[in-house]
Design a protein around this nucleic acid. Sequence first.
DNA 1: GAAACTTTTTGACAAACATCAAAACTCAAC
DNA 2: GTTGAGTTTTGATGTTTGTCAAAAAGTTTC
Lengths: 187, 187
Amino acid sequence: MQQLLIQIRQFSTISNETEELLHNCFEQVVYPKNHQLVTEAAVCRHLYFVEKGALRGYYTLDGKEITHWFGFENDFVTSFHSFITQEPAVENIQLLEGSILWSISKDTLTSLFNNHPEIERIVRIAYEKYYIRLEERYVNAQFKTAAERYEQLLNDSPHILERVPLGQIASYLGISQETLSRIRSRL
Amino acid sequence: MQQLLIQIRQFSTISNETEELLHNCFEQVVYPKNHQLVTEAAVCRHLYFVEKGALRGYYTLDGKEITHWFGFENDFVTSFHSFITQEPAVENIQLLEGSILWSISKDTLTSLFNNHPEIERIVRIAYEKYYIRLEERYVNAQFKTAAERYEQLLNDSPHILERVPLGQIASYLGISQETLSRIRSRL
DNA sequence: GAAACTTTTTGACAAACATCAAAACTCAAC
DNA sequence: GTTGAGTTTTGATGTTTGTCAAAAAGTTTC
């Protein structure tokens, strides 16, 4: 729980009262490797903070699994589209390792928004950061070659490469596993 | 100004007092075609609402201009990365048509955040919507063929095709102008 | 309406990447 | 150490898209 609060303090200064509140609203959950946290077509009602572990978000296209993000320690994860709209998710979230998560429900978060402007601010700032990161990834995905994207991943997030099978990394980079293998042999 | 308030009411219910406040904080600006609203390497200090007109955001890569978004009536536009962080922009924003915009400065918005939680909420919800849209575009860009992306654009935003030269649309779709021309001749 | 300019299309060829199939490697279980 | 499942690499071939160059179509200006 300390770890979660430290992370939140990086978004915005928060009062002791609010910290206390968050303490009561997040609940620890522990799941084993390969557990399915969110399933396609179900509504995702929780937001999770990763204390320890690794997850991936993926969906199915032409019968193939496409991994489009990974989550590790100190990340907030959920199926954002489903969590925000409360419509059925189009993606799955699966644990890559046994993980310790902290969970808050959509309803609890909504009531926090209504009673505590400080929380609204934290989330607004969190979105700003996530938005900027997504924007950067978008530009990379569309306008750089596969080899450049791989090298960028190598620079920015080497931990992903160590904890995730090659096939999932390839689909994350938007290329086939064979192409990724060839890029690596060239370096 | 009415148009701006109508748009904001779609994010969240707002009090008359807050509407009054917004009225005082946004300022109308009018610029001619080809005006450069934001320039690479300068800090972007304003957020704009488009009452009438068309804009594009683009940056330069290997000497070529890459258009990565278009803005039209009722959109909020800015160089989000620069506006949020107040670091120099990496992109340019240019008017595709003479346009009527409503502008608010970063400083004014910050003081609104500090004094009016209602405004914080509007912006938090706006970010949610923008985030979801960006996520969808990201998935499209990476995992669909050029022809599929073009057909999607044709379905979702035919107005873009009518108001923007082909070369800019091609770079928006992440393909060369020649490829786009060939896709169109096939349909 | 001819000249000058811009935008779009077409053609020939090269590069990047996907697909299918098979081989090599890794590693846990016996 | 051998077996077998899972993962990664290699090889051969085809598709998609990019690049360069030129032709065609569309616009603006005088």
